[in-house]
């Protein structure tokens, strides 16, 4: 029987151009065409915002800064603390672009859990695919691989643009933007992409478990929201911190904070900074000064890489669980 099938086959297969999507990929792109357009639009809007921040928006804000003469620092003026309209706009757009990048993992998870997997399992269109010549395993692999490629292709250029914009205009950032702020930190490194991929993996797993679009949507939203919020709290501990000790008070920021407190003449550490100002306490413990554990900007890449490894491990575990569930259910 198989022999008969293969002899008939050549007449039916047409030559294909290698780059045109076909098979499961074509099906996925066709079925989720509106989601694809939405993603392209989403990335384009962020890219346009970042380019504006880099070029015209920054020029306007810089002109304003020059005109205000705050830049020279000669006349200390209270008004210089607040940016002018152009500076405020630059600030707001940077915040908006960063928020959109930060929101991407949650949006992706919602879509993956609700539409990509949950709905197709609920309305039987997944089963439609599995009863063509595509095994459920290959189907799931495509549901993960194609979006993963598109997510990476969208997020990595945004990261590069964000880095470029961030590096170009330090003067416009004031004190309100620190490299270690979560939104900036993710968007300036590979973590923006990595968290987006985590959103995909969570969404797919939740969709597989829930098998319902609304449940899939809700639970993936919650799970990814939790992940994106809680993983960064581990961030300071992913790489050995540096410590700085001084005998007085610290002023200003030292990068990513890890911990702070007082140290005594024996070198022991106390949690309160200079005993909260109580002289009796200072005397009793022999407090000499204040210490801070922190990550300098040089720790950016080691920290990013360790966190990437952790998040990708979690994403891989979610993916493995999704495949395991699928294999257990289907023949």
């Amino acid at each position: 029987m198989t022999a008969v099938t293969t002899t008939e086959a050549p007449a039916r297969t047409r030559p294909r151009r290698p780059l045109t999507p076909h098979g499961v990929t074509w099906t996925l792109l066709r079925v989720h065409r509106s989601a694809l357009w939405f993603w392209i639009l989403y990335v384009a809007v962020i890219a346009a915002a970042l380019l504006w921040l880099y070029g015209p928006g920054a020029h306007a804000a810089m002109d304003e800064l020059v005109r205000s003469r705050c830049r020279d620092g000669v006349i200390p003026e209270l008004g210089c603390d607040a940016p002018g309209p152009a500076g405020a706009r630059w600030d707001a757009i940077l915040s908006l672009a960063g928020s959109m990048i930060a929101l991407a993992p949650v949006l992706i998870a919602t879509w993956a859990g609700g539409s990509l997997i949950g709905r197709t399992l609920e309305d039987g269109t997944a089963h439609l695919a599995w009863t063509q010549s595509v095994s459920p395993t290959r189907w799931l692999a495509a549901q993960l691989a194609v979006p993963a490629v598109l997510i990476t292709a969208g997020m990595l250029p945004l990261t590069l643009l964000h880095r470029m914009t961030w590096a170009a205009h330090p003067e416009l950032r004031h004190d309100s933007w620190n490299w270690s702020d979560s939104q900036i930190y993710n968007a300036n490194g590979i973590l923006a992409t990595v968290y987006a991929l985590l959103g995909l993996a969570f969404g797919v797993l939740v969709g597989m478990v829930a098998r319902r679009s609304m449940t899939g949507l809700g639970v993936s939203l919650a799970a990814t929201g939790f992940g994106v919020r809680e993983f960064p709290s581990l961030r300071p501990y992913l790489w050995p911190a540096e410590t700085r000790k001084i005998t007085g008070d610290f002023s200003g920021s030292l990068g990513m904070p890890v911990g702070e407190g007082s140290y005594t003449s024996t070198g022991a550490r106390l949690p309160d900074v200079l005993c909260g100002g109580r002289a009796s306490c200072v005397a009793r413990h022999g407090v000499v000064g204040e210490y801070r554990d922190y990550h300098p900007a040089a720790h950016f890449w080691p920290l990013q890489l360790v966190e990437t490894g952790l998040v990708l491990t979690v994403a891989a575990a979610a993916t493995a669980a999704a495949f395991w569930l699928l294999r257990r259910r289907t023949a």
């Binding site: 099938t5 076909h22 098979g23 499961v24 099906t27 066709r30 063509q132 010549s133 595509v134």
Partner: peptide, 17 residues
């Protein structure tokens, strides 16, 4: 999907048959 695209789906998912 349209009727035509649905049949295209059949062709894409069953390339050998």
């Amino acid at each position: 999907l349209t009727v035509e695209d649905t049949l295209r789906l059949g062709r894409e998912l069953n390339p050998r048959r």
